[in-house]
């Protein structure tokens, strides 16, 4: 025992056993129902897009780590999650190079240049999507993307159809939207699967219910106000809730931890603001689905919102 070298570190000497790896793994698990549904619905091309997206995102992180001479960090699965989320937001038939460019933007510009995992001010997957949508908008027209598919339901992207073609929302029964019988991105159509995954993450404590609930409230309240103002012109709140990226946004995009607040009141404001912005963009903006840009926009507000917080112990001098 004379010269035994002991491990020395600072308190605490216990840990609850959680880690980034477990957190991201649980996210990926929670995304699987919707992802598998997307593969079943859109076939092998969907699988190809998801696989390429996930692997290229991890590869980009590894390459950037090697160039910047940093230890490899892909083991925490953060890039894998970004890749999977990114792939799930794409249509199944998209050229491979768009996917690779998109994951580069997501991982490099969205995350690595800010300092890696946790340092991103924006949701990386959304940043990748936003750049692609601005640069190559034609690939994100879900109506032309699935022209060679035969569906048993209305083969029109609900949001775009209602907004630009003046289609009646009756073409899209809520039940169909909820069960994924709609044209859209690989992983965003199956609302039920996304809700199950989201509730799983809430119960496990990996995402905060405050964000999801206030986001959904923001969507419903704003859409309801528009609908009440002009039922002929605007779609109803439930239609908005189960179409486009809304459900993916409610449980997986708005809840991305690094770019969202952590205090309760800021979380409510943040979620509601995102939902509010989405409906504004959908109803009076130029895009059919504003989810991506709206969440990126509220990402900017995050640092300000977290200043609304309780007074720390011993700081309130009137009681001292």
């Amino acid at each position: 025992m004379n010269n035994t070298k002991l491990t020395v570190s600072h308190a605490p000497f216990w840990h609850d056993g959680d880690s980034l790896f477990k957190k991201n793994l649980n996210f990926i698990l929670a995304l699987l129902p919707a992802a598998i549904f997307g593969i079943l619905q859109f076939g092998a091309p969907a699988l190809g897009v998801l696989a390429l997206s996930l692997s290229s995102a991890m590869l980009w992180e590894q390459i950037i780590n090697m160039i910047s001479k940093k230890p490899s960090t892909i083991g925490d699965l953060d890039s894998a999650l970004i890749g999977l989320l990114f792939g799930m937001m794409l249509p199944a038939v998209i050229p491979w190079w768009v996917v690779v460019v998109g994951t580069f933007v997501a991982v490099f510009m969205g995350k690595m240049i800010f300092g890696g995992t946790g340092a991103n001010p924006f949701n990386p997957a959304l940043l990748g999507m936003a750049v692609l949508m601005l640069a190559w908008n034609m690939f994100f027209d879900f109506n032309t993307a699935y022209v060679n598919y035969e569906f048993s339901f209305t083969a029109l992207a609900p949001l775009a159809a209602v907004k630009f073609q003046g289609a009646a929302t009756e073409l899209f029964p809520l039940n169909d939207l909820f069960m994924g019988k709609e044209v859209g991105a690989i992983g965003a159509t199956f609302s039920l699967g996304l809700i199950i995954g989201g509730i799983y993450l809430i119960l496990r404590g990996y995402i905060r219910w405050e964000l999801s609930v206030s986001f959904i409230a923001g969507i419903l309240v704003t859409a309801f106000l528009f609908y009440m103002a002009s039922p002929q012109k605007y779609a109803g709140p439930w239609f908005h809730l189960f179409s486009g990226y809304t459900m993916l946004g409610a449980f997986f995009l708005i809840t991305e931890s690094a770019s969202s607040p952590v205090q309760r009141i800021p979380m409510f404001i943040y979620g509601f603001l995102a939902g509010f912005m989405i409906i504004l963009m959908r109803n009076i903006g130029t895009y059919a689905d504003g989810t991506i840009l709206a969440i990126l926009l509220v990402n900017v507000v995050n640092p300000l919102l977290d200043n609304i917080r309780p007074t720390a112990l011993g700081k309130d001098m009137s009681n001292a």
Partner: peptide
Amino acid sequence: NNCVNCGKCIQVCPADIPVN
């Protein structure tokens, strides 16, 4: 690692410090 802003520290802090 960087802080990932998960907010667990905020939930447990007895002194209400913005640990993140």
